[in-house]
Nucleic acid binder design. Structure first.
Length: 715
DNA sequence: AAAACATACATTTTT
DNA sequence: TGTATGTTTT
């Protein structure tokens, strides 16, 4: 690429960011400011100034973003060879290369959520702890945040001084032990082990930071402490770190993302140059004005402006509906109108807070014959048949992977039942060998009769044969397993129910063939480690003529002409779990901000007055964010509820004045829920709400004009 | 050992 | 509400 070429295509500040080659650089860039463009051109500019591509490492937030960046740098005429990937993929690569130094085996399995849950349940059980007091999800969350803060088992054990921490420490220890026994790492381990390796092993650290002389990190606002450490270590030798991000778009706090990483960049790298990109090339001024109004309500924030460059467009629209079905049908109607106006379907996206909200949309779209695609986390890889197939591959790649082995040992049914497995497990435990080795020594297990022994021998023999065929390309092996394991036949026998499964496995096989062709040195271990980091979000096809449905989180980094954001109601957006924490509430606000700023031309916000939540038809409360956006949500008389008094809400016609105000901790009484304390009061004029924790344990957000809350004096 | 049934349980967002 | 696990039946 010639420098004149990007001269014409970049604004002055973008150009400045591109041409600042050496030393630490922070690019604070608002939405739609051409941030990705800057990184892409920067890679090209580095290569222009004769930096070798292999010395460049760019880190993106998703695989999808990495893929796009590769394509774009290629399009600029850049030779391929720059390492562009997510943090997790980079870590897999590093850990495999330096497995010995990291004290692991390079053929490790990567455990996902459900694998983790199994391990944590086992760990809790092994420690003799009641899972009712220490629920798996809670333990996993805590352990995850420990790992993200780089707190290993020993230091945690040392600092644990209360009952909860001490018990959790036991579980944490055993959990890590189980992972080691299975030769497995969880998602957090990938980051943690890499961070610790880089931090402790100066040889490895200097080798890698010499390999990656230029480090570029996108979406820096969403890095957690482990990722931060990795970045810092990798850049330690040369200081050539370029981070880009937008604190207002930080939406992954729950995953350990620490917004301070970006806010403190200038402290961490004292000679850092900071460039702000505040011009927005994506949205109309109308949309940006709304976005700014909303985000300004965040207190913990550096002031930033969004400068529109587009001409004035349509105002944002807010529509209310009776319930989620009406909402979906209403949107379908609007979309049909858009289609009549020659809008193409891939110019339309619908965002929601939680995946469950997609259901009513699907129904409405099927009814109206509108083509759509749902962008969801890991749908495909969560299918039973896919997980079964992958489990076979995992066992071959990593025989120590007991979870995978237990999954396939009797799938399809081959007469190796629970009692048999328990006997082998006991044998393996008493001889301190893995389950797989136990199966191999089945002849020595005296408690087993002849029939199960033979069945196990046949199974082991089958795996050994697969194993002999497991080097090089993965596709042929997968096909062989599908047939010879008996899985295909079991699906055929299941009739119409199994035909979907066969189709899905065929899709998997196709994907594996594609992997074989695209990869220089395809290998089973490599394929499995890559696939573990892949999600369906990465398969979104923007060229398809379909409407995109996704969560607000998945919308990050994308843009559409027409955006619908649905279910903007208290409890949903902001989500109820953020009600009692101001930081979390601010994150919810940022989430909506991200959604709003995806829209290029038309933004439609909707909410429903009633919504079915967990099977219950409940009156909703319009989101406080609507109020903050300056949107009048006063319902007209015809919209007021008449026959739904299900949740204790009612409308008192006599209260034409403003509802009473409350202070935090005010003791109150509610007709239905009884006594409670106000946790939070939201002054929204007529639409003010109070979040109350009742003695029943329920936490409710109540709209004060509908709900009679009696103030009780403290005794 | 598999299927049928019952009951508990959680239920945000994802690499 | 739906999933996921546990229990009973065949």
């Amino acid at each position: 690429m010639q420098s004149e070429q990007y001269d014409r295509q970049l604004t002055p500040s973008q150009k400045k960011a591109v041409s600042h080659i050496e030393g630490p650089l922070l690019v604070i860039a608002g939405p739609g400011s051409g941030k990705t463009r800057v990184i892409t051109y920067r890679i090209a500019a580095l290569i222009d100034s004769s930096v070798l591509p292999k010395n460049i490492c760019a880190i993106t937030f998703t695989n999808k973003a990495a893929e796009q960046m590769r394509q774009r740098t290629d399009a600029l005429g850049t030779p391929t060879g720059a390492h562009i990937s997510t943090f997790h993929s980079l870590c897999v690569r590093i850990l495999r290369q330096y497995a010995a130094q990291a004290n692991i085996k390079s053929n490790f399995s990567i455990y996902n959520d459900s694998d983790q849950t199994r391990c944590i349940k086992q760990a809790t059980k092994d420690c003799g702890i009641d899972k009712k007091n220490f629920p798996p999800s809670r333990c996993l969350n805590t352990i995850s945040s420990l790992k993200n803060s780089l707190i290993d088992t020993e230091p945690f054990e040392a600092q644990a001084d209360d009952f909860f921490s001490k018990t959790l420490s036991k579980i944490y220890n055993r959990y890590q032990q189980i992972l080691t026994e299975n030769n497995a790492l969880d998602f957090d381990d990938l980051l943690t082990k890499t961070a610790i390796l880089l931090h402790k092993n100066k040889t490895v650290c200097s080798q890698l930071s010499n390999r990656f002389k230029f480090l570029l990190i996108d979406e820096y606002q969403d890095t957690n402490h482990a990722q931060y450490t990795i970045a810092k270590e990798l850049a330690s030798a040369h200081n050539n770190i370029c981070a880009t991000g937008d604190p207002d778009q930080s939406i992954y706090r729950w995953r350990g993302a620490d917004i301070r990483n970006i806010l403190d960049f200038e402290n961490d790298w004292p000679d850092a140059v900071t460039i702000k990109l505040e011009e927005n090339f994506r949205s109309t001024p109308n949309i940006l004005e709304a976005a700014d109004k909303l985000i300004s309500k965040n207190k913990n924030r550096k002031q930033k402006v969004l400068i529109p460059t587009k001409p004035k467009g349509h105002d944002i629209s807010v529509t209310s509906f009776d319930d989620e079905h009406e909402e979906a049908l209403g949107i379908a109607d609007q979309i049909k109108k858009l289609i009549k106006q020659k809008t193409t379907l891939n110019d339309i996206a619908i965002f929601y807070r939680i995946n469950a909200q997609s259901r009513s949309l699907e129904e409405a779209f099927i009814k109206n014959k509108i083509p759509y695609q749902i962008i969801r986390g890991v749908e495909f890889y969560n299918r039973k048949e896919i997980r079964d197939m992958l489990a076979y591959l995992k066992v071959l790649a990593n025989p120590a992977d007991q979870i995978a082995l237990l999954r396939v040992i009797n799938t399809p049914a081959r007469g190796i039942g629970k009692t048999t497995i328990t006997k082998v497990l006991n044998f393996a435990a008493s001889h301190k060998i893995s389950l797989f080795d136990g199966l191999k020594k089945v002849e020595q297990i005296s408690s087993l009769s002849k029939a199960p022994k033979t069945k196990i021998a046949v199974f082991v023999n089958m795996l050994e044969q697969f194993k002999a065929d497991s080097s090089g390309k993965v596709g042929p092996l997968t096909e062989r397993i599908f047939i010879e394991s008996g899985l295909q036949n079991s699906f055929k026998a299941a009739g119409s129910e199994g035909s979907d499964a066969i189709e899905n496995v065929n899709e998997l096989i196709n994907a594996i063939h594609a992997y074989d062709q695209q990869t220089e040195e395809p290998s089973l271990v490599d394929y499995l480690q890559q696939i573990s980091l892949f999600s369906d979000t990465d398969t979104y096809d923007p060229s398809g003529q379909r409407i995109a449905l996704m969560t607000l989180h998945a919308a990050k980094g994308l843009e559409f002409e027409n955006v619908f954001i649905i279910g903007v109601e208290e409890g949903l957006l902001p989500h109820e779990r953020s009600a009692d924490d101001d930081d979390e509430l601010e994150e919810e606000r940022r989430l909506l901000f991200v959604g709003i700023t995806r829209a290029k031309a038309n933004l439609n916000i909707t909410y429903a007055r009633y919504r079915t939540i967990r099977g219950q038809f409940l009156r909703t409360i319009p989101s406080q964010f609507l109020f903050e956006l300056g949107i009048d949500i006063t319902p007209s008389d015809s919209e007021l509820p008449e026959d739904h008094h299900d949740d204790g809400y009612y409308y008192d016609e006599s209260t034409s004045q403003l509802p009473p105000q409350f202070k935090k901790n005010q003791l109150v009484r509610h007709e239905v829920f009884g006594l409670g304390r106000v946790q939070k009061y939201n002054d929204m004029g007529e639409n003010s709400t109070a979040t109350v924790k009742f003695n029943t344990g329920h936490i409710k957000t109540l709209m004060l004009k509908y709900t009679k809350l009696e103030k009780i004096k403290n005794l």
